[in-house]
Design a protein around this nucleic acid. Structure first.
Lengths: 166, 166
DNA sequence: ACAAATTCGTTGCGCATGCAACTAAATAGG
DNA sequence: CCTATTTAGTTGCATGCGCAACGAATTTGT
């Protein structure tokens, strides 16, 4: 490392955002780190994008769900989900089943092949999570989960009005 | 709400990723929520993108830093930072100062105008953070910060080899 | 001292993303 | 009923992004 500059604080009177302790920044950095690492698994092995993986993961857990459910649950834009769904359908990994009670929406469901991919991916995702949280004790993991829960619930209320519901 | 489907668990033998407790997913959802909400502030008021805000925030805190420092610190791609820097320079919010000791890199610094924007933005960012963490007690905030610290440090090691250094 | 490898930063390119406008369907209000 | 509003999902468009290749400067190894 050629250079290594000391943390040069300012002498100003106006308030300073200390990035190292600024929560939105830190959360995004941590989320990026985990996303990037996890994305390697499902991108390199199955050519899945992040939205595509989320669709598959949701349907793997819930059997069927609508695009709207997936979008709001994962805080994704509906067009993002729409395109992921189209691509997964074309690859034969999911199918759409029109909802007769409300023909605007469609139930999404994994095909056999889609479920095979999910069942191959799920253990790897869980293993990754294990590695990832292995620096924390069981107790700390529970505490962290609870704190994230509280913050997420609160943040869904602060955000742009429309995009809520879980 | 027209429909509301019960959490329909599967009877399968293979492992299932429970998204509601899957940490990478939850972290990204929470990060998206905070990012989106915070982005409204600096996008609508000053036309800043997320990378641009990060450059300004870094230089607001550190006086000067290179593009590379900013990228690795915030886990951003170097091309993302390069373009944010170019745009901020064109808007007259930052200047580049060639480093005579290593003429590959350049020191970046806020202009007067850039600092004015920073000083307008910083209090709002801090106020947002306050609102955001107000569901947690002081003690819980400290615990959360410490847990994120540990995880981030650990995650930088798990990730793609190149992209580390803080 | 010199060739090979590494590093900082830029840029062309293809792709993904968000926005806004749109269609089709459902709901609300009078 | 019939119109106005809301909602699920799609798509054109412009912008932003990551990748990979590149130029210039520096470091390494011999």
């Amino acid at each position: 490392m050629a250079h290594q500059i000391a943390a040069q604080k300012r002498e100003s009177s106006s308030p300073t955002v200390i990035l190292e302790s600024f929560l939105p920044y830190r959360l995004n950095v941590l989320a990026s780190l985990t996303s990037n690492a996890l994305a390697q698994i499902y991108a390199e092995r199955f050519g899945l994008s992040i939205p595509a993986w989320r669709v598959i993961a949701t349907l793997g857990q819930y059997e069927y769900r609508t695009a709207r459910d997936i979008a709001s649950h994962g805080v994704m834009h509906k067009s993002t989900v729409s395109r992921a769904v189209a691509s997964l359908e074309q690859r034969g990994l999911i199918v759409r089943k029109p909802n007769q009670d409300d023909r605007r929406e469609e139930w999404l469901e994994l095909t056999e092949e889609g479920r095979e991919i999910y069942e191959a991916l799920a253990p790897e995702a869980l293993a990754f999570e294990d590695r990832f949280v292995s620096v924390l004790t069981e107790e700390e993991q529970k505490v962290l989960a609870a704190l994230i829960d509280r913050l997420s619930g609160h943040a869904r209320l602060l955000g742009p009005e429309g995009e809520v519901e879980g």
